[in-house]
């Protein structure tokens, strides 16, 4: 996982003097280079590779084989791009991604917003590891939502697709309430600080001409703060790659596909290898 790109800051909000952070347990500093662009240095003061994409600054401690993934839909005209900010969570970076891939918790954790009883059933959906792109995809996911987005006027059945293009990044595509034929794009980019501590950087590319930027940011931050109370209270802290002490069901297929993909690639930073 050293050879992956990770988010470490919002490109438009880089600090004037370098800010200290952690990446995979190593100290890094994020700031500006002389020309004003982003600069990230490691503990020895060496400049690390950087790139700016999706409103965020990305860096790596290794030498990535591939370019950072792209999100073609986000380039469509008419979308508003939202830097949501950041939330620090005392959990495994992999658990943060797994939770983002889950719909069955909506009625209980995001009650009356992303879900509500009695609409708790998770219908069958499709999950695959795409060989060509080497990504996890879940498609044909449907769920009833009282208020799917800031722009939603009332309850709708929302269609979802989930995509995992990198071990600590996930993208969800969901029905855009004002434009039912299009997908809103909501991402969760996770900066793995340690195996049990992470910083999440959600980012959105939405069709929403009505809500203010502040409203859209607050909506997503509220959702994530609700998730944090779950993520900091799961046992064990690391994500189990052996489900021998858990009871996954068909509703957990995306979680299981994600864990299978981590296992196959040896992406185990933040993972628990034996059932615990």
């Amino acid at each position: 996982m050293r050879h992956q790109w990770y988010p470490v800051g919002i490109a438009a909000k880089l600090p004037d003097s370098p800010a200290e952070s952690l990446l995979l347990g190593e100290r890094v500093h994020i700031g500006r280079a002389k020309g004003g662009g982003p600069q990230v240095t490691d503990a020895k003061g060496r400049a690390l590779p950087v790139l700016t994409r999706f409103g965020h600054v990305w860096t790596t401690l290794g030498t990535p084989e591939r370019d950072l993934f792209t999100i073609p839909e986000a380039d469509q005209p008419g979308r508003r791009l939202v830097d949501v900010g950041t939330v620090r969570v005392r959990c495994s970076p992999l658990r943060a991604v797994e939770n983002f891939l889950d719909i069955a918790h909506f009625p209980f954790v995001h009650t009356d917003i992303l879900g509500a009883e009695p609409h708790t059933e998770v219908e069958r959906y499709e999950v695959e590891i795409r060989e060509d792109s080497d990504e996890v995809w879940a498609t044909k996911v449907r769920f009833f939502q009282p208020q799917a987005a800031k722009s939603a006027g009332g309850g709708i059945t929302t269609d979802y697709m989930y995509r995992v293009p990198a071990p600590t990044c996930s993208i969800l595509y969901k029905t855009s309430p004002p434009r039912p034929g299009e997908w809103d794009v909501i991402t969760l980019f996770v900066q793995p600080m340690t195996e049990e501590l992470c910083q999440v950087w959600p980012w959105m590319a939405l069709f929403d001409d009505a809500s203010t930027m502040t409203d859209m940011i607050h909506f997503q931050q509220m959702i994530f703060v609700q998730d944090r109370s779950i993520l900091e209270n799961q046992i064990p802290a690391k994500l189990p790659l052996d489900p021998g002490l858990e009871i996954p069901t068909r509703a957990d297929m995306t979680s299981i596909a994600y864990r299978r993909w981590l296992k196959r690639h040896g992406y185990t930073y933040g993972a628990q290898l034996v059932a615990a």
Partner: peptide, 23 residues
């Protein structure tokens, strides 16, 4: 037992305790 969430964060309805994560 489902996915390891602490049941002490759960909610009580009637004579049953539900997990706050997936109910």
């Amino acid at each position: 037992p489902h996915r390891g969430m602490r049941l002490s964060h759960g909610f009580v309805r009637g004579e049953a305790l539900s997990c706050i994560y997936h109910g």
